[in-house]
Each structure stands twice: as structure tokens, then as C-alpha cells.
């Protein structure tokens, strides 16, 4: 038996909106520690890892570990029926081939339940080793989204380079080139507006902008984004989910020319 009650249901709505176009089907894993997901896109270039810790739920019951295969497009269709202020409860019985999403309006005057069919998904769980990243950039998530969107109008790939000077996002296309440099800036009014660069070694990697743009759909989950880079490793683009966990996108680099 599984029953997870999330008062801030909008978080789950936002999570789905941010991953449904990247991943078609995924297994949600439920254990006593939390509700999680790991899935790759169909071309195995990007991987998403989601964690919503059990402590973040108002009520969390998971009698035994469960893996529930869901079509994210269908799950998103159902979650879109929840109001932004609604409380969302996820329920499933052991061995059941369905999951139920229950939505309660804040005033309890509207209660809906949606039952969705589960599916068998043969997904391979990858081991993600702990890594010391050469450069870690934290910046406003909206700024990162703006840069990815702007550059994708000019080129298909972005070179992200971190040096003592700052982080540089560069692209090149038929119409020309673009370079955007963000310097470390910690003298801001609000901490979430800061750009912080922790660099142990300079690093420069090339990535497909199409994927970066897809990751920025998670911008609504967090005011800041953390980009962790090391040569010879996928970049990690992480959005923290307030007091609950995170959504991390891993993207394999392009091979340098």
C-alpha cells in the first residue's frame, strides 16, 4: 500500500511539465526514503534524476518498495486537471496495475480522483558515481533559461567555459557567433540573484542546446540552477525543489572537433 499526500501539489505538476517532453515512459520508485525517478531520453543522451524526499510529504506511507511504470504524457494529462493550489495524493495498492491521483481543493469543496493505468517498463537503472566537479556554477535559473533560449536562435550547440573570469556561453551558426559571459556576482540584494563560480580547474565543454532548452522547463521549480562541469563527464544541471529534493538533468557532452 502506498499513499503519499503532497500539500503543495503544484510541485508535482511542475515536475511533470519539466520532464514529459524529454522522457516518454519512466518508472517511479517509491521507498521509505522518498519518491524518485531515473530515466533517459530515447536517444540516451540525457538522463533525468528526480528525488522527492518522504519528509516533504504531509503524509507518506510506503509499506514496501514499489516501482510504478508510467507514461509521463498521460500522467501529465491527469495532473493538469489538478488546480495549482490543490493537495495531491498518490495512491496505489500492492500489485495493482493502476495508480490513483486524488486532488483536493484548499477549501475541501472539490475532490477529484483520477485512476491511471500503469505499464511495464524495462528500464535500466544506471549507477551515477559521486564526482568532484572541476567547476560548479550557481546562477539565477531564469538567466540560464534566457541564455539557452537566446543562443538557440543562433546555433545548435553551446560551449560552456568556466575560467577565473566567469562562465562563458558561446555558440556559432550560419548567421554568426555569440558569446555571453556571466561574472561572479555575489553583491546582490537577494541571494537567489547571485552568480557564484566555484572553480578548481578551468573547463570547457560542448553541449546540444536542444537538450539544455528542454531542461530549462524546470525553471519554475527553483530560482537558482546549479551547473556542474568536469571534462570527460556529463554536465549536471540541477534545480532544487524547495525542502523536498531535486531534479537533476545529466547531459553527455559533444565530442570536441
Amino acid at each position: 500500500m502506498l499513499e503519499l499526500r503532497l500539500v503543495q501539489g503544484s510541485l508535482l505538476k511542475k515536475v511533470l511539465e519539466s520532464i514529459k517532453d524529454l522522457v516518454n515512459d519512466a518508472n517511479f520508485d517509491c521507498s521509505s526514503s522518498g519518491f524518485s525517478l531515473q530515466a533517459m531520453d530515447s536517444s540516451h543522451v540525457a538522463l533525468v534524476a528526480l528525488l522527492l524526499r518522504s519528509e516533504g510529504f504531509e503524509h507518506y506511507r510506503c509499506d514496501r518498495n514499489m516501482s510504478m511504470g508510467m507514461n509521463l504524457g498521460n500522467m501529465s494529462k491527469m495532473l493538469r486537471c489538478a488546480g495549482n493550489d490543490d493537495i495531491i495524493t498518490i495512491k496505489a495498492d500492492d500489485g495493482s496495475d493502476t495508480v490513483t491521483f486524488m486532488f483536493e481543493s484548499p477549501t475541501q469543496d472539490k475532490i477529484s480522483d483520477f485512476e491511471m493505468k500503469l505499464m511495464d517498463i524495462d528500464s535500466e537503472h544506471l549507477g551515477i558515481p559521486e564526482a568532484e566537479y572541476q567547476s560548479i556554477v550557481t546562477m539565477p535559473s531564469a538567466e540560464f533559461a534566457r541564455i539557452c533560449k537566446d543562443l538557440s536562435g543562433i546555433g545548435d550547440t553551446v560551449v560552456i567555459s568556466v575560467t577565473k573570469e566567469g562562465v562563458k556561453f558561446s555558440t556559432r551558426g550560419d548567421i554568426g557567433t555569440a558569446n555571453i559571459v556571466c561574472r561572479q556576482n555575489t553583491t546582490v540584494d537577494k541571494p537567489e540573484e547571485a552568480t557564484v563560480i566555484n572553480m578548481s580547474e578551468p573547463v570547457s565543454l560542448t553541449f546540444a542546446l536542444r537538450y539544455m532548452n528542454s531542461f530549462t522547463k524546470a525553471t519554475t521549480l527553483s530560482n537558482t540552477v546549479t551547473i556542474s562541469l568536469s571534462s570527460e563527464l556529463p554536465v549536471v544541471v540541477e534545480y532544487k525543489i524547495a525542502e523536498m529534493g531535486y531534479i537533476r538533468f545529466y547531459l553527455a557532452p559533444k565530442i570536441e572537433e
Partner: peptide, 14 residues
């Protein structure tokens, strides 16, 4: 065009 690497060439099956 830079060739694209895959996630599976960095992370292996758990």
C-alpha cells in the same frame, strides 16, 4: 558537426 556522446558511455548499469 560535433558527434554526440551517450550517457551510457559514462554511467554503467547499476
Amino acid at each position: 558537426v560535433n558527434p554526440q556522446r551517450q550517457i551510457t558511455s559514462f554511467f554503467s548499469k547499476a
